[in-house]
Design a protein around this nucleic acid. Structure first.
Length: 284
DNA sequence: CTGAGCACCTGAGGGC
DNA sequence: TGCCCTCAGGTGCTCA
């Protein structure tokens, strides 16, 4: 079937939180603790205009690497922080020869270089004056990280109470919880046996208690899968952080549910493709 | 405050 | 072979 082939092609290109996490782990050995010699900016704007100060950076040590939501944060010795977001098609590649859609090249004093390649230009690179997240326009209003204890059933149940929209787009709202993108929202709801269109404030406490661990589990499993393929990538073409994951519902419209055999259905919620098993995920 | 919808961008794939 | 259309993704932003 055509849809099957299509979905397989998509698996390799979407940076969700697990891909961002493994990307960070991949660039850390080259960048953290090393001196950033210069930043080669070759595009006027990605998601936002490129900050001119980025090109002015010279010979500054990178003292730390962090992730917040899907943002990669590189803390500099001068107190500033570089922010990188991969958007939907962005990749950070190590020591690769120039290629189409290379937009920013981080040149290290060691001679290594890390390139942001992003065909669709939905990513962003920014430079902040401080490492304090509360000072960052794009960070200060974000919800909790899904893999921390702050994201628990009590918290989520409280957050969902005020929301009448469908649970799936609500899970993808960064004010509720960060890092749950389209793919893993679909997968987590299937695992928790919750219909994606169910109003968020109609979930029972019990359902939320099932859902929260499923979100954590699916993200952790994906990170582990990325961790293993990361090694392969580094030994081959230098790409980082993208991997195959055995999706249960995402991209599987019309194919049999892996649990009960019922054809997976596809609907649109908040302009996003939504996949679910009508039998395993009843409306109530 | 919530919620709905748009815009941004390119490449892949399908239909003709 | 090639053109045109649709779709995919994250998320900041606008407007009701």
């Amino acid at each position: 079937m055509g849809c099957q082939r299509k979905a397989e092609g998509l698996q390799a290109v979407m940076p969700e939180l697990p891909e961002v996490e493994t990307t960070l782990r991949g660039i850390e050995p080259l960048m953290v603790g090393s001196v950033l010699e210069s930043v080669d900016v070759r595009v006027e704007k990605l998601r936002f205009p490129m900050p001119p100060e980025l090109s002015d950076l010279h010979d500054v040590k990178i003292i730390g690497g962090r992730r917040r939501s899907k943002y990669i944060l590189l803390d500099l010795e001068n107190g500033q922080t570089i922010m990188v977001h991969l958007g939907m098609s962005g990749r950070l590649v190590l020591n690769r020869p120039p290629a189409k859609h290379d937009h920013v090249i981080f040149r290290m004093a060691s001679g290594d270089h890390v390139t942001l390649n992003d065909p669709r230009k939905f990513g962003l690179v920014d430079l902040y004056k401080t490492a304090d997240e509360a000072e960052h326009r794009l960070l200060k209003n974000l919800g909790p990280e899904p893999l921390t204890d702050a994201f628990n059933a009590a918290y989520l149940y409280g957050a969902l109470c005020k929301r009448s929209t469908a649970i799936k787009p609500t899970l993808m709202d960064a004010k509720v919880v960060v890092g749950v993108g389209n793919i893993y929202a679909n997968e987590a709801l299937f695992r928790a046996k919750i219909h994606p269109a169910k109003p968020a404030n109609k979930l029972t406490k019990k359902q939320v208690e099932v859902l929260v661990p499923e979100i954590k589990t699916v993200l952790k499993e994906a990170i582990e899968a990325g961790g293993s393929s990361l090694r392969d990538y580094q030994h081959s073409d230098g790409k980082l952080g993208y991997f195959q994951f055995n999706f249960l519902v995402y991209g599987r419209e019309g194919q049999p549910c892996r649990v009960c055999g019922t054809p997976i259905q596809k609907i649109t919620l908040a302009q996003r493709s939504t996949f679910f098993c009508p039998k395993c995920q009843p409306k109530r």
